[in-house]
Amino acid sequence: MLDNTTRMGECMRANLRELQERHAVIGDVRGLGLFCGAELVSDRQSKIPVEEKQVQAVIGACMADGVIIGATNRSLPGLNNTLCFSPALIATAAEIDTITSAVDRALTKVFGRRFADLVRRNKGSATPAGPLFSSVRPADRGGRGRAPRIG
């Protein structure tokens, strides 16, 4: 179980870092094992937190998509801007991909266009055309629940 927790935690953070490249609102990704966080900021340079209602909107959009995530508690008013992830210690790569794909869709819904889309439009650089997360082949995505909608 410890081996899976370590491997899947690395997978989760890699997926979240990929989201960070796609969404300017993710200012930091951190974690240990399968306990991870993605800090949402209105500006990466100043690290000004997004509004808590926006964080809750991301959580709500994930919930509507069948994925349960959390946020930092309300002990520090105005600084509760980190999405918290703590999947089961037996989580599979497909389940990690499902979680992070739901977060991708939620961030796009709440904050608009992806950062990568803006980069591509403004600087002409290309972004990958395939599925967002590739740790599992589409044929292997059976598992519990429905397969993630990608893109």
Score class of each variant (00 low, 15 high):
L2H: 11
N122C: 15
G31N: 06
A14W: 02
S46H: 04
L2W: 07
L40V: 09
N122S: 15
Q20F: 06
A71H: 06
V136Q: 06
Q20H: 00
F85V: 12
I26H: 05
D97M: 12
S101Q: 13
Q54W: 05
L32I: 15
T108K: 09
M12T: 12
T72M: 04
A14G: 14
K47N: 09
A57F: 00
A94M: 04
V50I: 07
F85A: 12
A24K: 09
S42T: 10
F35M: 12
E39W: 04
R146H: 12
P77K: 05
P49H: 06
R114H: 05
R113H: 09
P49C: 03
K109Y: 01
L79C: 06
F133L: 09
L83K: 05
Q20I: 10
S101E: 10
N122T: 15
A139Y: 12
G145S: 08
S46E: 14
G70A: 10
R44W: 03
R141L: 02
V55P: 03
L83C: 06
Q56G: 09
G37F: 03
P148T: 02
N73A: 08
E39C: 06
M63N: 14
N73Y: 03
A88R: 03
F35S: 10
P148I: 05
I26N: 09
I150H: 11
D117L: 00
V25L: 01
C62I: 08
L89T: 13
A102H: 00
R7L: 14
E21C: 10
M8W: 00
R17S: 13
G37T: 07
G142Y: 00
R121D: 15
F111V: 13
F35N: 02
N122W: 09
E52W: 00
E95P: 06
E21R: 08
L89V: 15
S135W: 02
G66N: 08
I150C: 15
D28S: 11
V110T: 12
P148S: 05
T108C: 04
M8S: 10
C84K: 04
V67E: 09
E52K: 00
M1D: 14
C36F: 01
I96Q: 03
L89D: 11
T72K: 04
L40K: 00
E39L: 04
E21N: 13
F133W: 01
L118N: 15
F85I: 09
I59M: 01
A14V: 14
G27L: 02
A57R: 06
S135T: 08
N4G: 09
T72I: 05
G66Y: 04
V110Q: 03
R121M: 13
S86G: 15
A102M: 04
G143L: 06
E52F: 00
S86C: 13
C84F: 00
D97N: 11
K53L: 02
R120C: 15
A88P: 08
A94H: 00
A147P: 11
V67D: 11
E21S: 12
L19R: 07
N15W: 00
T127K: 13
R30S: 11
K123R: 13
A147C: 03
M8V: 14
V41I: 09
R22S: 13
I48N: 01
L2P: 13
S135V: 05
T72C: 01
M12Y: 07
G151M: 08
R121F: 12
L118R: 13
I150M: 11
R146S: 13
L107H: 05
G151W: 00
S134K: 10
A126P: 14
A102N: 12
T5V: 15
Q20L: 08
K53A: 12
V103I: 09
